[in-house]
Amino acid sequence: MKPVCVLGNGQLGRMLRQAGEPLGIAVYPVGLDAKPETVPYQESIITAEIERWPETALTKKLAEQETFVNRDIFPCLADRMRQKKLLDDLGLATAPWLLLENAEQCAEIFTTFSQFVIIKRRVGGYDGRGQWRLRQGEQCSLPQDVYGESIVEQGINFSAEVSLIGARSSKGKLVFYPLTDNLHEEGILRISVVRPQLNEKLQQKAETMLSTIMEKLNYIGVMAMECFIDGDNLLINELAPRVHNSGHWTQNGASISQFELHLRAILDLPLPKLVVNSPSVMVNLIGIPINPAWSSLPLVHLHWYEKEVRAGRKLGHLNLTDPDVKRLSGVLTKLAPLLPNEYQRSLSWAIQKL
């Protein structure tokens, strides 16, 4: 079995490494400051946990390798404008958008769009950073370097946010997990809920959309598609050409985790039908220290990233899964006092979703 080098050594690279161990796959998460001679890239399949990276001696070497799976797709999807153009070309629905070219455009934004818009940097920025939400009448005071390097999207009064995670093999085989309901707060994913076989019509629509994208790009591996539900329509918000935060529940709630699935796809291993029989909940642990009491509750699986605690930083997550919705909701209720006040709304939301 060929080893795998992961460009990036954050929590996603760590979990890819963990997923490879039972299969005998050596996975090497590689920091961007690593020296090329310390990395076995020449005999490895290469993947990435991040869409965009600086040019270093190492990334130059990796970019030269034909074994860098999806190498030429990352620049396309890392740029929000190029990503939007791709979706437009494929006839897939997104929020209406345009390139923000200069400050004078700010005065015209609300004649083009509704009373609420979101400005996003074309590259970089995540978890709410590099984004500005503006309502009609608010002053449009933005950093000068935003102009020409950002897009404006019409704000959508969506009824729900969902994501679909799927994978494609080099032979074109496609497999998908059930749609995941997500709740974001201040631009950061707080909690995800999965209820298998809840809405077959919406599931099929999402699978068709993501299939179209992966097949157009000849993409290999796991890809995530975040969407808004607007009436009976799905509007694509963003694509991630990698394993994704909203798929962490698969570690304990699916027959194959998204991390193992990605390794299988890029190594040309079988992609069997994914089995998800029980509802699952994933709780992001953001900016809070570890609490051993979490693990005292039944059903709770703690995944801790061993990172320095900082406000707004994803430090770990909790996965809970059980076929009995009442029991699962009961554990979430017991978990509530063990988490800060800012989690109470999201936990109540998850219990209602179940």
Score class of each variant (00 low, 15 high):
G253R: 06
G253S: 07
G253W: 06
G253C: 08
G253A: 10
S257N: 08
Q258K: 10
Q258C: 06
F259C: 10
F259V: 11
E260I: 03
L261A: 02
L261V: 02
H262G: 04
H262Y: 09
L263I: 05
L263H: 06
R264H: 07
R264S: 03
R264L: 09
A265C: 06
L267R: 10
D268K: 08
D268A: 14
P270F: 04
L271R: 04
L271K: 04
P272S: 05
K273C: 02
K273E: 15
L274V: 13
L274F: 08
V275P: 00
V276N: 01
V276T: 12
V276I: 12
S278M: 02
S278A: 15
S278R: 03
S280H: 02
V281R: 02
V283N: 01
V283R: 03
N284Q: 07
N284F: 09
L285V: 13
L285M: 15
I286M: 03
I286V: 15
I286W: 04
I286P: 00
G287N: 07
G287E: 06
G287S: 07
G287Q: 09
I288M: 14
P289F: 05
I290K: 15
P292E: 14
P292S: 11
A293H: 15
A293V: 02
W294I: 02
W294G: 00
S295Y: 00
L297I: 01
L297P: 00
L297C: 02
P298K: 12
L299R: 04
V300N: 02
H301K: 14
H301N: 15
L302C: 14
H303C: 05
H303L: 10
Y305N: 07
Y305W: 14
Y305E: 08
E308A: 10
E308H: 05
V309R: 07
R310Q: 13
A311C: 05
A311L: 09
A311T: 11
A311F: 08
G312H: 13
G312W: 10
R313Q: 13
K314Y: 11
K314S: 10
K314I: 13
L315S: 10
G316Y: 12
H317N: 12
H317I: 13
H317A: 09
L318R: 10
N319I: 12
N319F: 11
N319D: 14
L320Y: 14
L320A: 15
T321P: 09
T321R: 11
T321L: 12
D322G: 11
D322K: 11
P323E: 14
